[in-house]
Amino acid sequence: MTYVYTVIAFGLIYTMLALGLNLQMGFTGIINFGYVAFVAIGAYTSAILTVGHHWPMLAGWAAGTALAALASYPLGLLTIRLGGDYFAVVTLGFSELVLLFVLNQRNLTHGAIGITGIHRPFAMLGPQLSAPVTLVIIAALTALTTALIWQIGHSPLGRLLRAIQANDAAAQALGKNTVSYKVLVLVVGSAVAGLAGALYAHWVQYISPEQFSPDVTFNTFIALILGGVGSLLGPVIGAFVLIAFLQGSIVLQDYVHVLSANQQSALRFMIIGLALVLLIVFRPDGIMGRAKRKRAARPERAS
């Protein structure tokens, strides 16, 4: 049962992550390779406040969400004007900075040791009951986020974002301040990442810096590409396929002993890498594809 719970919880959390990234990348065309930074900020903020300062859990989650959003605002203001490719690398650098901060501010984050003793909601019900209750809460918040993103996607704002993605200059020519919309999208997406991070911290009950490596960003990208970039339900499907594969191969490890544990986990990531390449080459629109609105081939720079 624990295993099923874990798959569902991680699937939901990655759904949320993919939703936030989809808003940035799929709708608006912002390539954020430092996405994990905002997950880490949400997770650590909530963990530090609830464990160290005995804040109520909801306040911790709210603070984690808010701080992730707040951190992305100056970053967006400073860097979103850069070309998309530059922005990608600068955000990757930002996530390294956040990770360094977490590793080195030991009095705040306990450095590499990490923070233990983070509680699940309704922990007083005992581990048997609090796990499913936590799952229901995570599911409700994921549904809420999905509804929010759905709303944005179907609103005039969503159409504007797609216009920015399709042709930034044309949107500007129509009198839209594309920079401030991009910053807005970055902030909302980061808030979603922060909330997902806080939920993650309270689900696994122990966080350390190594859980917030760039692999989290890449996994989210994979989930998004698997499900189909820019579609509304793609992230949900992509996240659960990815988690089922990741967790499934971990379970398999307990029964198959041909390879060492190290080799099995290496093989897992080799398969992910291969799948990523094959998907991009053969199904760039994801398993589900994009039903309509096939993106016209954009004239690209030197090939």
Partner: peptide
């Protein structure tokens, strides 16, 4: 993204 796949 393809190059991330190759790297992994």
């Amino acid at each position: 993204i393809a190059s991330i796949g190759v790297e992994l």
